[in-house]
Design a protein around this nucleic acid. Structure first.
Lengths: 310, 310
DNA sequence: GTATCAGAACAACCGATGGTTGTCCTACTA
DNA sequence: TAGTAGGACAACCATCGGTTGTTCTGATAC
C-alpha cells in the first residue's frame, strides 16, 4: 500500500472531488485519478463513485476512510519519534496506569507541543539508568534511592511525587470495616504483592516497609495483572494488598473491594524523575519545570518513607 | 515514507542483518541496503550501525522500531477493513465504555478470526438503521423499540442484554447511606443526565422511566464526559445520575461516590442487536449466534422496562 | 434542444525510482 | 595470512508515476 495514495485518498474524500485534491497536493487531476485507481486495484474494492460533478465515497470508501486517517497518523508519529532536532521526548514509566503516567498526561495537556514517546518496557532502575545513559530514553520515573546505590555522576534526579498507599481488602477481611488502619496493626499480616521481582526498587521499598512494621510481603505467583489480583483479594478473608491512593482503579462494583487509607503514619512511595545531565532536549527541560512547579506540597508530618529515600 | 522500506526495516531489525532480511523478502541484499538508506535519508537519522558481522539498531532505530510495527499494523487493519470476500465486520456501538462494547470484546475473544471494525460515530437509532440499509455498517447495538416506531421490513433485531441501572450519588446525598433504593422513592427527585439529546432512544428510555415513577430527568448542559459528570455529582447533595451496574468505572477513590442498586423493580436498559436481513457476512452470523448463546437468563421477575420494550 | 462547463478517464510520453548483477571493502576466524 | 560473511558502491535497465493533450459525460444555461 502506498502512503502517498492513501494521503491522496483522504484529500479527495475531504474535498469531494479529485480536482481540488490535486490542487491541494500540487499534482495534476490525472495523477490523483491514477493514484486512486491503483489504490483501488490494490485493495480490490471501489473507493469512489465518479460522477461528472465530483467523486463521492462508496460504502467501502467510507469504511476505509477512518483507517486511512489512522494510518497517516501512525506515519506522523513514527516520523516524529526520530525527527532530528525536535524529535519526541522518550519517557519511561513503570506502567500506564500508575500515578506517574498521570503526571505525564497532565504534562502533555499543559505542553501539547512536546511530542511524547512513552516507553514501558524497561525492567528495574538499573535497566532504566543504562537506557538513559545510552540515550535510548530521555527520562524515567523511578524510585531511585535504593539502599547502597549511588546515582552515576552523569545522571540527575528530582523527587516529583510521594504517592500515599492504601490497603485493599475484600469485604470479609478483618480490616474491611475500618475507616483507616495504622501500619503497626499490620504486624504479623501477610500482604500479597505478586510479580515483585527481587532487585527492583519496588521490591526494595516494600521490603523496607514490611521490616519497619513487622509484617511480611508475599510475592508468590506471577503478575497476571491488577484485575486477577483484585479478583483474588475480593474473595479472600486474609489476603490484602497495597495500592496507590491515586491509582484510578477499574473494577466492576460487584467485587465490593475496600480501599482502606493507611494513617499514623501514611506510607508514601517516592517517585523521582531521572535524566542524563547533558541531555539538551528542550522537552526535557519543559517536563522538569512542569513537574517541579506542579509538585504537590509534601504532607510533611505523618508520612513514612524508607530511610534511604529521605 | 515508503511502507516497503518500513517493512524492510522491521525485517532487518529482527534478523540483525540485511542479508537474512533480503532472503526473507525475496530481494537482494543490495536492495535492502538501498531501501534502508533512503528511509534513513527520509527520516534524517541513522537507523542501523553497519558492521561486517551484521547491522545493529542505533538509538534512533530502537525508538523507531515500535512505531514502525504500529505503522504496519495500521496498514494491515486498513486493508482488512475493506478486504473483499472476508472484510471486517463493521459494528456500531454507542460508546466504547458501555456494556455492549463489553459484549463485543467477549465475542472477539471467542472468535478472533472475525475481523472487527468498530464504529461509534452514528447518532441515534435512525442514523444507525440508515447506515445498516446502505451497508455502511453490518450491525448495531441499540435500544430499538421506541414508541411509535416500527422496524423496516428489511431490518431484523434480537434482544441481547438487559442492563440493570444503578443510582450514583455523592457522599452527602440523601440516599448515600442506603444499600438499595426502590424507584418509587425517586418521586420528586431530579436526575441529571447531561448530553441526552431529544429524539434518541436513550432519551426515550429515560423519559419513560421518569414518567413511570414520577421523577424528572434534567438534561441540562453539554456532555463533557463521564469524569466531569461524576466530579459534579460527588460534590452535590441533591444531584444524582444513573449508570449501568456493569459499567466498569474509572474514578479516583477520593470522590467517594456511591453506587446504589435499584430494586423493586430494577430498571433495565434493553439492548438489541440490529442487522439487515439480507446481509450475508459470515461474521454477522457468528456474532448473532454468539450473542444469543451467551445471553444471560433474564431475571424475569422484578425488572422494569418501558412498555414499548417488552 | 443545443451550447457550455466542470470534472473524470484515457493515451502517449518521459524522467525518476528501485530493482538487478558485478565488484570491492572490512573485520573476524581458522 | 587466507578465507569468509556481510555491507557498500557502481553500472545498468525496467517499471512506475508523473506530465501534457484529448475525449467523454452529465448537469445547467440559454
Amino acid at each position: 500500500m502506498d502512503l502517498a495514495a492513501v494521503r491522496t485518498f483522504v484529500s479527495a474524500a475531504d474535498a469531494g472531488q479529485f480536482q481540488e485534491a490535486a490542487a491541494e497536493l500540487s499534482i495534476t487531476q490525472q495523477a490523483v485519478s491514477k493514484r486512486i485507481a491503483v489504490l483501488e486495484k490494490d485493495l480490490g474494492v471501489r473507493l469512489f463513485m465518479r460522477t461528472p460533478r465530483g467523486a463521492r465515497l462508496t460504502i467501502d470508501g467510507q469504511a476505509f476512510l477512518p483507517h486511512a486517517r489512522a494510518l497517516l497518523d501512525a506515519e506522523q508519529r513514527a516520523a516524529d519519534s526520530v525527527r532530528p532536532g525536535s524529535r519526541a521526548l522518550r519517557v519511561d514509566v513503570i506502567g500506564r496506569r500508575v500515578a506517574t503516567a498521570g503526571l505525564l498526561r497532565a504534562f502533555h495537556r499543559a505542553h501539547p507541543e512536546v511530542q511524547l514517546d512513552i516507553v514501558t518496557t524497561l525492567f528495574g532502575v538499573d535497566a532504566a539508568i543504562a537506557a538513559l545513559r545510552t540515550g535510548e530514553i530521555d527520562a524515567t520515573f523511578r524510585a531511585v534511592t535504593m539502599p547502597g546505590r549511588h546515582l552515576p555522576d552523569d545522571i540527575e534526579a528530582v523527587p516529583v511525587l510521594d504517592e500515599p498507599l492504601q490497603l485493599v481488602t475484600g469485604p470479609t477481611h478483618a480490616f474491611a470495616a475500618d475507616r483507616a488502619v495504622a501500619p503497626v496493626r499490620l504486624a504479623g499480616q501477610r500482604i500479597w504483592m505478586p510479580g515483585n521481582a527481587p532487585g527492583t526498587e519496588w521490591t526494595a521499598y516494600y521490603e523496607a516497609f514490611a521490616a519497619a512494621f513487622g509484617f511480611t510481603i508475599d510475592p508468590i505467583g506471577p503478575d497476571f495483572g491488577v484485575e486477577v489480583l483484585l479478583d483474588t483479594i475480593a474473595e479472600s478473608s486474609t489476603l490484602a494488598t497495597f495500592l496507590s491512593e491515586r491509582t484510578p482503579l477499574v473494577w466492576p462494583v460487584s467485587h465490593d473491594l475496600r480501599r482502606i487509607p493507611l494513617h499514623d503514619p501514611t506510607p508514601v512511595y517516592p517517585h523521582s524523575l531521572l535524566w542524563r545531565a547533558d541531555n539538551p532536549h528542550p522537552g526535557l527541560a519543559a517536563l522538569r519545570d512542569h513537574l517541579t512547579a506542579t509538585r504537590p506540597d509534601v504532607p510533611g508530618s505523618e508520612v513514612w518513607k524508607p530511610e534511604w529515600a529521605r
